[in-house]
Design a protein around this nucleic acid. Structure first.
Length: 150
DNA sequence: GCCAACGTTGGC
DNA sequence: GCCAACGTTGGC
């Protein structure tokens, strides 16, 4: 089983929103490296941190479970969607989603600032300079460590 | 709002 | 295939 960290802007889709809907396709990823991880490495049963980005206090806010294998991102086909991409077709889809299920919020958000203060997390992709991936792997050891901060 | 860092595009 | 220009991300 793999562990992940997935970013979302809470103004667009927050951990509270996921709690409300329960299960949701993680759509709108438009970066090839992130796409490849979704499509090739994510599997049903994997766990992921829900990370709030581009907000007042960037932080890991909760935990979700991947509940499907990858399948084409239908928002890429939707003319009215902000994620519409005419280059992606049903015959040859360019972008993929997995379904994610709300598991729980963390007892307290673990902020980016706090994560940065732990040498054990130095090679967490989130903390590496200039990293803008919206989906990134978390090692099992890092996962455990982060949860121990809770 | 600023800006560093990175990804993508497109001319050549 | 190179690389300059441009767009986007995301912390601050």
């Amino acid at each position: 089983m793999n562990h992940w960290l997935m970013k979302s802007e809470p103004d667009t889709f927050s951990i509270e929103d996921l709690d409300r809907v329960g299960i949701e396709p993680w759509n709108g990823v438009r970066n090839y490296q992130a796409r490849n991880m979704i499509r090739d490495q994510m599997h049903s049963g994997d766990l992921a941190f829900f990370y709030h980005s581009s907000c007042a206090i960037p932080a890991i806010a909760g935990i979700m479970e991947i509940t499907s294998e990858a399948y084409p991102d239908s928002t890429a086909f939707d003319f009215s969607s902000p994620y519409y991409d005419p280059q992606s077709t049903a015959q040859n889809p360019r972008w993929y989603v997995v379904d994610v299920r709300f598991l729980r919020r963390l007892n307290r958000p673990i902020t980016l600032q706090e994560l940065k203060s732990h040498p054990a997390l130095l090679d967490l992709p989130l903390l590496r300079r200039g990293n803008r991936l919206s989906v990134m792997p978390v090692k099992a050891q890092q996962w455990k460590y982060i949860l121990s901060l809770e």
